[in-house]
């Protein structure tokens, strides 16, 4: 039977990193390649927000999760995707059984019982001490867990800060590239280029020095 892996949660930062370009792995599934490209473009142009596009792509990935190479792509984006959850076995201790019925045995048992009572008392005290120690241990564990929680929160905060910094850098890089491109392509220049193109296309082309085979055919086709 084919294994089914659930789509990683929509809350995972990797979805956002994928769409803002911080995660920039080459994808393999054609739908995913095209959709990610479109989403990045629409976020850049302001048509949709990052969160809107995360919602959108998440819903579509759910639909096409079984498509070719989707599992590879998701594993490349989410490092822990496709990893098996560890299994644990609960083992029961065997129970020993004894059976005796002679008198000697009963006396011995009575003696044993006394010893056991003493032993029990001892054990009760030991148990009491153990419980006290256990409580102390639990308190210490609680403290350790609290410290671990604080450490993880701090780590998460650092990761989030780093992700934000990466995102900021990616945006700055894109903006700087766009600014550079904008400087080279001002609106006026764009308009002028369009006008020039229109004029040339309207003009009858007389000399065509280099043309693909198919281009020559199409040219003849329209001339006819």
């Amino acid at each position: 039977m084919e294994k089914h892996y659930p789509l990683p949660s929509k809350d995972r930062q990797e979805w956002r990193d994928l769409l803002n370009g911080t995660i920039n792995v080459p994808l393999k599934n054609y739908f995913f390649q095209m959709k990610v490209t479109q989403a990045r473009n629409q976020i850049k142009t302001g048509k949709f927000s990052l969160e809107e596009e995360v919602d959108n792509i998440y819903a579509l990935c759910k639909k096409f999760i079984k498509a070719k190479n989707m599992d590879t792509d998701l594993a490349n984006i989410f490092g822990d995707y496709l990893q098996e959850a560890p299994t644990q076995e609960n083992k029961q201790q065997p129970i020993a059984k004894f059976k005796h019925d002679d008198r000697q045995y009963i006396m011995e048992e009575a003696e044993k019982q006394k010893k056991l009572d003493t032993e029990r008392k001892k054990r009760a005290i030991i148990e009491q001490i153990r419980k006290q120690e256990e409580r102390a241990k639990q308190e210490a564990e609680k403290g350790r867990l609290e410290a671990e929680r604080i450490r993880l929160e701090a780590e998460k905060a650092i990761k989030e800060r780093l992700a934000l910094e990466r995102q900021k850098k990616a945006i700055e890089k894109t903006e700087s590239h766009n600014l550079n491109k904008k400087e080279l392509i001002s609106q006026e220049k764009k308009q002028a280029e369009m006008q020039r193109l229109k004029a040339i296309k309207n003009k009858k082309r007389k000399v065509v020095k280099k043309k693909s085979f198919f281009g020559s055919f199409i040219d003849n086709f329209f001339r006819n």
Binding site: V25, P26, L27, K28, Y30, F32, Q33, M34, V36, T37, R40, L197, I200, K201, K203, R205, K206, V207, V208, K209, K210, K211, S212, F214, G215, I218, D219
Partner: peptide, 19 residues
């Protein structure tokens, strides 16, 4: 396109008009 290579083929190069 995020890993997909998308082609655009050249139909014609018009040297005279630079098109």
């Amino acid at each position: 396109y995020s890993g997909a290579s998308i082609n655009v083929s050249i139909k014609e190069v018009d040297i005279e008009n630079g098109l």
